[in-house]
């Protein structure tokens, strides 16, 4: 049963494996360059486990940021995760004790996999999602730790390596676009965020963007839901 779920989950995680190993390497190399050994990279990748947050953490640690400032920064960068939980309440309903681990491992990438991949009929969905989450986490830990080890041995020009995260989301976005007939939710996400970015600037736009996305999705609920059922019928 477990083996079957693992086998079903593994192929779905391959794109994340590539992204996480690459992104993790970049993180480890950068962190090491600020004087934190691979033990820190290992530890942080296990207990924080968040791509953009860990990149921000490098600056916070290197600059010796204050505790309150660090707490606020974390909240602002991670606040988008509120939405992830909202979409997975139904899916994780029956997860039981494993729920804590599933929630801890709910990154942007794992979220997108759990949303878009359905387990085969003969596999326990909870085990399937758990393996996706754990596999993704293991790639991240390996990438981060290996990066810090590598960084202590060789020096490279990592400029631009963090684009791997952008590339990952662009690919997911493209996939969703090709698979969905109704592009309005995707467009609402892009347009609200872009408008808020212009209005509020890069450090403050995330919360207004989230609020406006939720607001517009709520206002147009009737029309968006109708479209949804139409597709289900056809």
């Amino acid at each position: 049963m477990r083996k079957k779920a693992l086998k079903a989950a593994f192929p779905h995680t391959l794109p994340v494996m590539a992204g996480y190993l690459f992104l993790g390497l970049g993180f480890g190399i950068l962190l090491e360059s600020k004087g934190f050994s691979f033990i820190w990279a290992f530890f942080m990748s296990i207990i924080i486990y968040a791509g953009s947050m860990q990149y921000a953490a490098i600056d916070l640690l290197a600059g010796g940021a204050g505790y309150l400032y660090t707490a606020m920064m974390t909240l602002i960068i991670q606040i988008r995760h509120l939405f992830y939980g909202l979409s997975l309440i139904e899916k994780y309903k029956t997860a039981g004790k494993r729920k804590v681990l599933l929630i801890h491992e709910l990154t942007d990438e794992t979220y997108s996999l759990v949303c878009s991949c359905d387990p085969p009929e003969d596999v326990d969905p909870n085990l399937f999602y758990l393996f996706i989450s754990m596999l993704d986490h293991s790639y991240w830990v390996i990438g981060c730790t290996a990066g810090a080890l590598l960084g202590s041995m060789v020096h490279f020009n990592t400029n631009g390596i963090d684009f791997v995260m952008t590339a990952l989301f662009i690919v997911i976005f493209t996939n969703q676009w090709l698979e969905q007939k109704d592009h309005r939710p995707a467009l609402i996400g892009v347009i609200c965020s872009a408008v808020c970015l212009v209005l509020f600037g890069p450090d403050r736009f995330i919360i207004p963007a989230m609020v406006s996305i939720a607001l517009i999705l709520t206002v147009f609920r009737k029309s968006l839901e109708k479209e949804d059922t139409k597709h289900a019928d056809s």
């Binding site: 953009s52 988008r80 939405f83 992830y84 909202l86 979409s87 997975l88 309440i89 139904e90 994780y92 309903k93 029956t94 942007d108 979220y111 997108s112 949303c115 878009s116 995260m165 952008t166 989301f169 662009i170 997911i172 976005f173 969703q176 969905q180 939710p185 995707a186 467009l187 609402i188 996400g189 892009v190 609200c192 965020s193 872009a194 970015l197 995330i206 963007a209 989230m210 996305i213 939720a214 999705l217 709520t218 609920r221 968006l224 839901e225 949804d228």
Partner: peptide, 29 residues
């Protein structure tokens, strides 16, 4: 999980993934 999730939240859960990925692309850039 032991209570019925409000239909509005279920609806948000359905449409948000697409909007959020769009937001994340903007966030990265």
């Amino acid at each position: 999980g032991n209570k019925e999730t409000p239909p509005y939240i279920v609806y948000l859960g359905k449409v948000l993934p697409f909007a959020i990925i769009g937001m994340l692309v903007v966030y990265c850039l």
